[in-house]
């Protein structure tokens, strides 16, 4: 009782202060607000100088024959019209298209794994399998790329050695050196594609579907495939939509794996926009042109990110408030 009384007193005190405070608080808040601006100065400086300025500078210089350290001349839309006629640029987008389609199709495996996992009854077994399935995520991307570049090696590589040891020597290939196979080989890096965001999203969505629905299904004699198409996928609609746009953005930035394994070769078979942009700037010295290419990628990303933000806003499960 003695402990409770203060709590009971507080509301009364709050009511009293609520009546008397507001006139007092307002001037206080105003005087504090200058401190608030002061507190934001470090962030504003950092973001202004190292995020906003470079982005603006890139867009600005895409209209120039940019010559960092020397004299630059304004050339209007010349960089962009050069881009429209750049065969390699379009070819790199064709590769991006293949990468995107492959990325989406490859969701079949994480989806199947999530379905298998969710049908395990033991929570403990689910946890163990889930952890083992996503362990590859913990490896740095560069290490994974380097390991796969060894798997693909023509002489000592794991894949060719395996094919030879089971008597299928004729199937052994120069995986990364053959222009017809190089892109496909890059795409298979990380097979079976489970250690990633799609799997985690599928799994957590399936986990959140009430058990009663599944039970009702089994009572009604709905088999596994029917359940997948009639219940699981429709309930995952929003997540699928979000994933789709995230994959578009991720695909636009695709590059470092191709750089490590093939450097865009052979015969530009694996070139992607990011690699083309970097080689224009750092090998060709065409900084203005590279700025135009990067601005194009930037605009494309903004367009798709806006779609993500809209999808997110409608999604009640978002954690970020105030968006």
């Amino acid at each position: 009782m003695a402990i409770q009384t203060p709590d009971r007193v507080v509301p009364d005190a709050m009511v009293i202060t609520a009546d008397t405070r507001p006139p007092k608080r307002r001037p206080r808040r105003r005087s504090i607000s200058w401190g608030a601006y002061l507190g934001l100065v470090p962030l504003a400086v950092m973001l202004g100088v190292f995020c906003y300025y470079p982005a603006a500078s890139g867009i600005f210089h895409s209209f120039w024959n940019w010559n960092p350290g020397g004299e630059s001349t304004f050339i209007g839309f010349d960089n962009y019209s050069a881009m429209m006629g750049d065969q390699l640029w379009w070819e790199s987008f064709k590769n991006l298209g293949i990468i995107f389609v492959f990325g989406v199709v490859s969701w079949v495996i994480p989806l199947a794994a999530a379905e298998l996992l969710i049908s395990l009854r033991s929570e403990r077994a689910q946890f163990v399998y889930r952890t083992l399935l996503i362990v590859p995520m913990a490896f740095p991307g560069v290490v994974t790329a380097l390991i796969w570049s060894f798997l693909y090696q023509p002489n000592d590589g794991v894949i060719n050695t395996f094919l030879t040891s089971i008597g299928l020597e004729s199937l052994a290939q120069n995986w990364l050196g053959d222009p017809h196979l190089a892109l496909l080989s890059l795409l298979f890096i990380g097979f079976p594609f489970i250690a990633g965001l799609p799997f985690l999203m599928f799994y957590s969505t399936l986990q959140n579907i009430p058990k009663e629905i599944f039970e009702a299904c089994s009572l009604d004699g709905v088999n596994r495939m029917q359940r997948l198409f009639l219940i699981d996928l429709p309930l995952m609609g929003r997540q699928l939509q979000l994933l789709l746009v995230l994959v578009v953005i991720e695909t636009l930035q695709y590059g470092f794996v191709a750089y490590i394994l093939t450097s865009g070769g052979p015969d530009n078979a694996t070139t992607v926009p990011v690699l083309h942009m970097l080689s224009e700037a750092f090998n060709g010295g065409n900084w203005g042109y590279a700025a135009a290419l990067s601005t194009t990628l930037f605009v494309l990303t903004i367009v798709f990110s806006t779609i993500v933000a809209l999808a997110k806003r409608r999604d009640s499960t978002t954690n970020v408030k105030g968006m």
């Binding site: 962030l43 973001l47 190292f50 995020c51 906003y52 300025y53 470079p54 982005a55 500078s57 890139g58 210089h61 960092p68 350290g69 953005i249 636009l252 930035q253 590059g255 990011v274 942009m277 970097l278 700037a281 900084w287 590279a290 700025a291 990067s294 601005t295 990628l297 930037f298 990303t301 903004i302 990110s305 806006t306 933000a309 968006m323």
Partner: peptide, 24 residues
Amino acid sequence: TMVIALLMVPSIASLIPLFVMMRD
């Protein structure tokens, strides 16, 4: 909003201008 907007700027897009800036 200005902070959130930066989530949409891919690092790869400002790579080249940022490089030039760091060189300067």
